[in-house]
Amino acid sequence: MISMNKVSKQYGSFHVLTDCTTQVQKGEVIVVCGPSGSGKSTLIKCVNGLEPFQSGEIIVNGVSVGDPRTNLSKLRSTVGMVFQNFELFPHMSIIDNLGIAQTKVLGRSQEQAREKGFKLLDRVGLREQAEKYPGQLSGGQQQRVAIARALAMDPICMLFDEPTSALDPEMVNEVLDVMTELAQEGMTMMCVTHEMGFAKRVASRVIFMDQGRIVEDDSKEAFFEHARSERAQQFLAKILHH
């Protein structure tokens, strides 16, 4: 589904990503973790072309992301993305947030879009909030709406960029629950997250990054029980033992 081959990116002489290579099969849930500044977010933003990269190749569903002839908008409409700060459109009601891209990008009718929107709001438990505005919802609710908004496009895979990092602790679980459910239904997912509980529950594989390199890329069992690199061991010790 997603294949990365020796992806590198630099700002001037600073290497943000160096030779990142990995594959994501259909239905896999990949958790990407690592210390801040290690390039995790940049890596998944490269997948849908929000971040350009200088060398290497990323193929999503048979389409090369880096190829200048690729219709990036079309590619992006098939890849759902959820951001750290939700990024709902504040001037639109919740149901319009879910509908706008369906009508303007996929060409669905207003009614189809609303119907789909209501169905997805039901699924994330927010049907009653449909006519409210993003600013009137809690962070956890906004993030669930953001997930529903991405799903409204019927994506072939989903990218999550630290979806719970900006949330109050008590709201983290409502978002993780939605993500877990999604994973169990077989959605292909790449999640940058520090929620190791989530990784242990649903991840197929864990990618650990440090200084722009993929240091570990292994099954979750192997990663949590005997991470090979010292850097990953330190990381795990810090985030698991408190």
Partner: peptide
């Protein structure tokens, strides 16, 4: 800054992102 990315990530072109996401706000 994330608003522009959010628009693009939905599959909007850059002009559409301006039209539907950035300019109204």
């Amino acid at each position: 800054p994330g608003q522009k990315n959010a628009g693009l990530a939905m599959g909007f072109t850059l002009p559409q992102t301006y039209r539907y996401v950035m300019l109204p706000m």
